[in-house]
């Protein structure tokens, strides 16, 4: 394969991993547990856009918007109905992790029951599947959207966390939830909002993956694992680290595939994770 195409493929994969990693990291910052349902939310994003594009056949913008919103609201409701009661009961992070495994399993099964377990493709809208050639690499519209969005979302979140009141509250809660409560931050309301934003970004990533390659119920696990791996490589909780990890993982995977073959992508990704956990568990960005 030609080098420009290889770099383009790495950027595309990296962009989707980045979107998942930053959204995962943001929720992790305030709750400190591995939310294994995060990838399933992304899958819901892909399926919801698929569904609402048919429901609002006349207006694709509304279809896409409602689809992503659906994923966001679902993420919010899961936090309110499951994670929040667990936290109130002072459950350990491991209990929350196991509960999120359950949520992941439920969503995967529901998607398969509602939409069949077959691989499906999203219809083409706005010419998103049209391709352009840049420096000898062929990219489709949705791939460019994903790359641009990943950069915008990352910078947006970094600025947001640094300069807005909401962002400062998030940083306060991530340092200490107890102290934040004492100084008058409504931590549970805040965590709810964080889950909403995080799930919206995940839903968007799922939609990009859906337009790019297609949707199947098991896609959530793939997306989740890549997102977690990228955020650990970059440094858990760090937004900018999540982006770094996402693109690094994209490059390692695609160049690795160039050397071995496509089927070993997941194994390569996990080998990278385990190496990082052993050698540099705090990730690239943290001291």
């Amino acid at each position: 394969m030609l080098l420009p195409q290889l770099i383009a493929n790495s950027l595309i994969a990296g962009a989707i991993y980045t979107l998942l990693a930053v959204s995962f990291s943001m929720a992790f910052r305030v709750t400190k547990f591995f939310n294994f349902a995060h990838g399933a939310i992304a899958a819901v994003g892909g399926y919801a856009v698929f569904f609402f594009l048919q429901a609002f056949a006349t207006n694709a913008i509304i279809g896409i918007g409602v689809g992503i919103l659906f994923a966001g609201v679902l993420g919010f409701l899961i936090e309110k109905c499951i994670y929040l009661p667990l936290r109130k009961r002072k459950s350990s992070n491991t209990v929350l992790l196991v509960a999120s495994l359950g949520v992941f399993t439920i969503i995967e099964a529901l998607l398969a029951i509602l939409f069949s377990s077959q691989f499906q493709t999203l219809p083409s809208v706005f010419g998103l599947d049209a391709t352009v050639e840049i420096f000898g690499a062929v990219l489709s519209g949705i791939q460019i959207v994903a790359i641009v969005a990943s950069v915008l979302v990352t910078t947006g979140l970094v600025l947001f966390l640094r300069f807005t009141k909401f962002g400062k509250e998030i940083r306060a809660v991530s340092d200490s939830e107890e102290v934040s409560k004492i100084v008058g931050i409504n931590t549970n309301a805040l965590i709810g909002k964080v889950f909403l934003v995080s799930a919206l970004i995940a839903g968007f990533a799922g939609m990009c993956a859906g337009f790019d390659t297609g949707i199947e119920p098991t896609m959530g696990l793939q997306l989740l694992l890549k997102g977690i791996i990228a955020s650990i490589i970059g440094g858990l909780g760090s937004i900018y680290g999540g982006a770094l990890g996402g693109f690094l993982l994209g490059f390692v995977e695609n160049f690795g595939v160039w050397q071995f073959s496509g089927e070993w992508k997941d194994a390569i990704a996990f080998a990278v994770l385990i190496l990082f956990l052993l050698l540099r568990p705090q990730g690239i960005t943290k001291q």
């Binding site: 499951i82 009661p85 667990l86 459950s91 209990v95 929350l96 196991v98 509960a99 495994l101 359950g102 949520v103 992941f104 399993t105 439920i106 995967e108 099964a109 529901l110 398969a112 029951i113 377990s117």
Partner: peptide, 24 residues
């Protein structure tokens, strides 16, 4: 059969969530 397999998965996922909530 196809749906039953998915229902099985749905049930044990739900069971995991309920156990964590009410009887860890």
């Amino acid at each position: 059969n196809e749906i039953a397999a998915q229902m099985r998965q749905l049930i044990y996922g739900a069971m995991l969530v309920l156990l964590m909530l009410y009887r860890p």
